[in-house]
């Protein structure tokens, strides 16, 4: 295999991983605060539709991305109101959000099916982008890819280096204890849910503005669910989310190439690998938990209704 092909494959893997990283890093923050939002797919797909619609109307990719973020925020606010404000069941609310998002995205995107725009511009730095190998791999991407990298680093810093991040992790671990200490449990959770929505919306916008620069209904194709799996697979660690997304993205690319190369393995088996790996990761996590402690946020998915 020549150098060019390797380089091309690596770039493809990176672009396939970007939407997963974006959506998963947002969900990671929400889950670290103790909220399980199964509506990632819905927020993502509405973000894709809204992003494309806004970008087409305004002609600006940046405004399109903002539209995607806004769509994710809107749905997340609804979810936060239900689950954090009204203590509704998180599983059912998340599924409602997914269905609502899929429906709304169809409505928003109805007028845009079949349209095409130029993909988001790739960065071109005079010297760096022209470097052999390193250049295209590191310095030739669109802004979304860098946003994803920035978010991973930012969330890592926030969770492990900032006081606000510490509060958020503590709230996800034990809402009763932190409430007794006077921390604002519901406010922090609501903000974490909003952040998750914004990231999912951005991930959707990446799909319709950069990855495949057009809108088609249901174009997220289950990536929101994979992002959810990825968070668990990464045991709620930001850097591992990035690594896992590259692995999952790699599996997708590998599957395409394996099919093209006519390898014996059925493509479906490769496609199933992320899901099976997630189940195995869950099993490994629970085996590890037996020695005490837990890598999952202990309050994840549990309803909190303070008495005063």
């Amino acid at each position: 295999m020549s150098f060019d092909i390797v380089q091309m494959v690596l770039v493809t893997v990176l672009t396939a991983a970007t939407p997963l990283i974006l959506a998963a890093i947002g969900e990671l923050v929400a889950e670290r605060a103790g909220v399980l939002n199964l509506g990632v797919e819905g927020m993502m797909v509405l973000g894709a539709a809204m992003g494309f619609a806004v970008a087409t109307q305004t002609g600006s990719t940046l405004l399109g991305a903002c539209g995607g973020v806004g769509a994710g925020l809107l749905l997340a606010a609804l979810f936060g109101l239900l689950t954090v404000g009204l203590a509704a069941n998180q599983v059912a609310s998340g599924l409602a959000l997914t269905i609502l998002g899929l429906g709304l995205s169809g409505l928003v995107g109805a007028g845009y099916v079949g349209m095409k725009r130029d993909p988001a511009p790739h960065l071109h730095l005079p010297v760096l982008s022209d470097l052999p190998v390193v250049g295209p791999l590191l310095f030739g991407h669109d802004a979304f890819v860098y946003a994803a990298a920035f978010l991973v680093a930012g969330v890592w810093w926030f969770l492990w280096r900032s006081r606000a991040g510490l509060s958020l992790r503590a709230i996800g671990d034990d809402h009763t204890a932190t409430h007794a200490l006077g921390l604002k449990v519901r406010k922090v959770r609501f903000l974490a849910v909003l952040f998750g929505g914004a990231c999912a919306g951005l991930a959707g916008a990446y799909l319709s503005l950069a990855y495949t620069p057009f809108w088609s209904p249901g174009m997220t194709a289950g990536r929101g669910w994979i992002a959810l799996a990825l968070v668990v697979f990464a045991s709620w660690q930001p850097v591992r989310v990035a690594a896992g997304a590259l692995l999952f993205g790699g599996a997708t690319v590998l599957q395409l190439h394996a099919q093209a190369a006519g390898l014996g393995l059925p493509g479906q088996l490769l496609s199933a690998v992320p899901y099976l790996a997630t189940i195995l990761a869950l099993v490994a996590l629970s085996l590890g938990r037996r020695q005490g402690g837990s890598s999952a946020p202990a309050a994840l998915g549990r309803v909190f209704a303070p008495s005063r």
């Binding site: 510490l166 204890a177 007794a180 202990a298």
Partner: peptide, 23 residues
């Protein structure tokens, strides 16, 4: 000092203390 501790099990000692200290 409460009888039932207000501690987060999966956080470290320092983190649990930092939680109520000035930033």
């Amino acid at each position: 000092v409460f009888q039932h501790f207000s501690l987060c099990e999966n956080l470290t000692v320092a983190e649990n203390i930092a939680l109520v200290m000035p930033p």
